[in-house]
Design a protein around this nucleic acid. Structure first.
Length: 109
DNA sequence: TGGGTGACTAAGT
DNA sequence: CACTTAGCCACCC
């Protein structure tokens, strides 16, 4: 099956550590496991997206997974994730406030 | 073994 | 701010 050392399990482990209302970028998740394969993280989410909070993993732009923006929006509303709305009606996660990291408990104020 | 793909990212227009 | 182009890394055939 999947060893805890596998890239696949490593990614899931990080995603599971993201608390509600916060998010991480694909690149940050990859970096958390000592990798730079942001695309590899996307592959994992596409495979196990139904077993983890995939909506807490977004792009560096603040946009959620391509083709799942509407699904993610429903989750952000119930988790209270800070969003930023565009004039065209498009939304985006406020990375400045929702960004999550290992040991990030303070802010610039 | 080698080549192609993608739930991505950074830089340019 | 939105769209396009080149670069990267892990996985599949």
């Amino acid at each position: 099956m999947h060893d805890p050392a596998d890239f696949f399990s490593r990614v899931l482990d990080v995603v599971e550590s993201i608390p509600p209302g916060s998010v991480m970028t694909y690149g940050s998740v990859a970096a958390a496991i000592g990798s730079r394969s942001s695309r590899g993280v996307g592959k994992v989410m596409a495979h196990a997206g139904g077993e983890v909070a995939w909506w807490r993993v977004i792009r560096a732009s603040g946009h959620p997974a391509a083709g799942h923006e509407q699904q993610a929006l429903e989750m952000y509303r119930v988790e209270g994730t800070p969003l930023v709305w565009s004039r065209a009606g498009a939304f985006r996660v406020d990375l400045a406030r929702a960004s999550w990291g290992p040991g990030l408990f303070d802010e610039p104020g």
